[in-house]
Design a protein around this nucleic acid. Structure first.
Length: 430
RNA sequence: GUGGCCUUAGCUCAAUCGGUAGAGCAUCGGAUUGUGGCUCCGAAGGUUGCGGGUUCAAGCCCCGUAGGCCACCCCA
């Protein structure tokens, strides 16, 4: 196939099997959001690029090298837009635009849909990927932080991934982070410490990153590095302690990870990540989130606290497939209408239509082929019954054949809907 | 954005030293009149990702390119 006729790099088709697996986790997420009082909403797939540049941070990787800019072929807004790389900025834009500060606070919102980032694809890392996003805007207290972490954890458990670790950290705020960063940089610049090239560069761009460096040479240097959790201002320290107390009270197990840093500029205080050590090559960050108390103000609103998380649905589906669980239940027709006369598609379609009109999931075999082939196809479709049309149709009767057992009986056409309705089994039920 | 590995039928893979591409599964059809899963027979399906080069001859060697994957960067 010519390259030009393939799906774009980093995108893929979700064929029915995979789409069904997605639908399953989407349904779990939607049900949970509703149960926790988070109401579903949508934002445009693209926004003014400035929303992301200002909200996420112009110097972050997500904006600097991964933003999918959109260029309309004409008009003044050329190159002013970008496909959303995450949901939070757009939701906060909507919060301000629609005056949600007048709604009862906090405003609890959820959103699920495709996000776009222009980076190099790998398994579980796509240019178009799906996130389930949950936000609580307008509550600065630590309890809501804990509620969200617990919600995320419950999602993975309900989806069928029990071995998801919760990583928790506080990254301080404007009051304490600058001083800590200065202390950290001083540590790495101290005499006698030689940093690898990559780490020297990161010291300039994002010093926190050095803490979870994968370079083995850094292990010793990092062991002596100051920890942010030891240098929080009183307000942040108190908040962090309260978040942990709430989590402990709910019996949530988590690991405080002082090296945990989120890649977006808007995060303050609470940062968390859902993590799963999977097989070789598996993307391990399944989701993450944190507090963004300054973001609404940055987007033109009044100072408003907020916290949220985004979970990668692609990675959940992938992890479920790797674990061999999450096989989706698919709707199959209860019955397939087949006919003894290969050419008589008219009666087959007519009777199937009547049955569907009666609310039954029924397929008609519309191919011109002999009865044996039709029955074969019906079995492959997973149908429970075949409605066989033959000469008895003239007398208003059909053969109803049980495709599992093989038994068969003559049934009056008029009795068929009621008979089948009793046999409808829930999709996926044994 | 950096480095590495891979690419043959829809899928999973063969193809000797460079000698003109094959299997299994899947699909479709047949095995005497209106009955499925098993079995048997058959058909269709390929510019060997794409483009160049070397050679009498390239799926195989060389270069480029696209895509996938892996490790980084980063993140979901």
């Amino acid at each position: 196939m010519p390259p030009s006729l393939r799906a774009p790099r980093g995108t893929r088709d979700l064929l029915p099997d995979e789409r069904a697996a997605f639908a399953r986790v989407e349904r779990i997420a939607r049900d949970l959001a509703a149960r926790y009082g988070y109401r579903d909403m949508e934002t445009p797939l693209f926004e003014q690029a400035a929303i992301f540049e200002r909200g996420i941070g112009a110097a972050t990787d997500v904006v600097e090298k991964e933003l999918f800019r959109v260029s309309p072929s004409r008009g003044e807004e050329r190159e002013a837009w970008a496909l959303r790389p995450e949901a939070t900025a757009g939701i906060c834009r909507a919060y301000v635009e629609h005056g949600m500060q007048t709604w009862p606070q906090p405003v609890r919102l959820s959103l699920s849909g495709p996000m776009f980032r222009y980076d190099r694809p790998q398994a579980g890392r796509y240019r178009q990927f799906w996130q389930w996003d949950v936000e609580a805007i307008g509550d600065a207290g630590p309890a809501v932080d804990a509620e969200l972490v617990e919600l995320g954890a419950r999602f993975y458990r309900d989806a069928g991934l029990p071995d998801v670790e919760i990583l928790l950290n506080s990254i301080g705020d404007a009051a304490c982070r600058p001083a800590y960063l200065a202390r950290l940089v001083a540590h790495y610049r101290a005499d006698g410490i030689h940093l690898p090239e990559l780490e020297r560069r990161r010291l300039e761009t994002n010093p926190l990153r050095l803490l979870d460096s994968k370079d083995p040479a850094m292990a010793e240097v990092n062991a002596g590095a100051p920890r942010i959790t030891d240098h929080l201002c009183p307000a942040c320290a108190q908040h962090f302690a309260a978040v942990r107390a709430h989590l402990d009270a709910m019996g949530i197990t988590y690991r405080v990870e002082p090296g945990l840093v989120r890649g977006l500029d808007y995060y303050v205080r609470t940062a968390f990540e859902f993590y799963r050590r999977g097989e070789e090559g598996q993307q391990q960050a399944l989701g993450g989130g944190g507090r963004y108390d300054g973001l609404i103000e940055l987007l033109g609103g009044k100072p408003t606290a907020g916290i949220g998380f985004a979970l990668g649905l692609d990675r959940v589906v992938l992890a479920l497939a790797a674990a061999g669980t999450g096989a989706p239940a698919e709707a199959v027709p209860v019955a397939v209408v087949v006919g003894a006369d290969p050419g008589n598609t008219l009666d087959r379609l007519r009777i199937a239509t009547d049955l569907r009109g009666a609310g039954l999931p029924v397929r008609a075999d519309l191919a011109v082929r002999k009865l044996g082939r039709q029955l074969e196809a019906a079995v492959r479709d997973g149908a429970q019954f075949a409605v066989i049309l033959g000469d008895e149709l003239a007398a208003g009767e059909v053969q109803l054949r049980d495709l599992d057992g093989g038994s068969q009986k003559t049934v009056a056409l008029a009795d068929l809907p009621a008979l089948l309705r009793r046999k409808v089994r829930a999709p996926g039920a044994p």
